[in-house]
Amino acid sequence: MKFTVIGGTGLIGSQVVRRLAEAGHEAVPAAPSTGVDLLTGEGLDQALTGSDVVINVANSPTFDEASLDFFRTTTDNLLAAGERAGVGHQVILSIVGVDQVPDLAYYRAKVLQEDLLKQGPAPYSIVRATQFFEFVDAILSWSSDDTTVRLPATPLQPIAAADVVAAVVDVATGSPLNGVRDIAGPEVFPLDELGKITLAAQGDDRSVVTGGSGMFAAVPGDVLTAGPDAHLAPTRYQDWVARTR
């Protein structure tokens, strides 16, 4: 099979391309560096020529209101190009609980992307993942200073990027779901506790203070954790952070 991976040079996309190639498929990365511009549509027709499946893991460059225009325009362009190319399966990567956080512009933008895909011309699959292990450091940096890191106690169920890649490849090489598959890590942590585990593993003696504002403080309850039907990945955060530090 031939796959075009939109965002195929990034953290998830590059690993998806590699896994598909290792399995004997033709996997074409599509990104600005390969001459594909999702916002203008430039290069899309060439990138999708002969593709059986399109996997879209490209992300908005911002998390504010501008992300709505990004996902609207890029999804419209990709679906139109896919229809011209006769693509039989469109796959996107989204977020567990995304439709339950209307106060965040970026989450509304991802819901818009999902809705456009559902209304589009091709069979589709949506893979919703929880927060990646690899982004925990960035989350800590949003509200830190020389002595403290302020984090809300929002429950998260983080997942390793490699496990996300495996799930995306599994869905993309199967029949279209015409629905959603949730994936998550095996354990739930309050974000402030996750911060303490991460700092300790790094030998960072800053203290974690529970509270603060920001994206995760606006999340209600445990909506970013997996429901009973989610597929749970095997990698534990403590094991991963020990290996990577």
Rank of each mutant, 00 (worst) to 15 (best):
T4R: 02
I6R: 10
G7W: 02
L11V: 03
V17L: 07
R18F: 12
R18D: 14
R19W: 00
A21K: 15
E22Q: 10
A23G: 14
G24I: 13
A27G: 11
V28A: 05
V28R: 04
P29G: 06
P29H: 11
G41Q: 05
G43P: 09
D45Q: 15
D45L: 13
Q46V: 11
L48M: 15
L48K: 06
G50K: 04
V54T: 10
V54N: 06
I55K: 08
I55C: 11
N56Q: 02
V57Y: 09
V57A: 04
A58W: 03
T62I: 05
T62A: 10
D64H: 04
E65G: 08
F71D: 11
R72H: 13
D76G: 03
L78A: 15
A80H: 13
A81F: 06
G82R: 00
G82W: 00
E83T: 12
A85M: 09
A85N: 10
G88F: 03
H89M: 12
Q90M: 15
I95V: 15
V96N: 04
L104F: 13
Y107Q: 07
Y107D: 00
Q113G: 08
Q113C: 04
E114N: 11
K118I: 11
A122M: 13
P123D: 15
S125L: 15
F132S: 06
F133T: 05
F133M: 00
E134Q: 14
F135C: 08
F135M: 08
D137M: 11
D137Q: 15
A138Q: 14
I139F: 15
L140A: 09
W142A: 10
R150K: 13
T154W: 02
L156A: 05
L156H: 06
Q157W: 07
Q157N: 07
I159L: 08
V164N: 03
A166C: 10
A167T: 05
V171K: 00
A172S: 14
A172M: 01
P176A: 08
G179Q: 14
G179C: 13
D182S: 06
D182F: 00
I183R: 00
A184P: 09
G185R: 10
P186F: 06
P186W: 09
P190C: 10
E193G: 00
E193R: 06
L194R: 03
K196I: 13
K196M: 11
K196G: 03
I197S: 01
A200V: 08
A200Y: 05
A200M: 04
Q202T: 07
G203M: 05
G203L: 01
D205I: 08
V208F: 07
G211H: 04
M215C: 04
A217P: 12
V219Q: 01
V223G: 05
T225M: 01
A230C: 10
H231M: 09
H231I: 13
P234F: 09
T235H: 06
D239H: 10
V241G: 01
A242G: 14
R243F: 05
T244Q: 13
T244Y: 09
T244P: 07
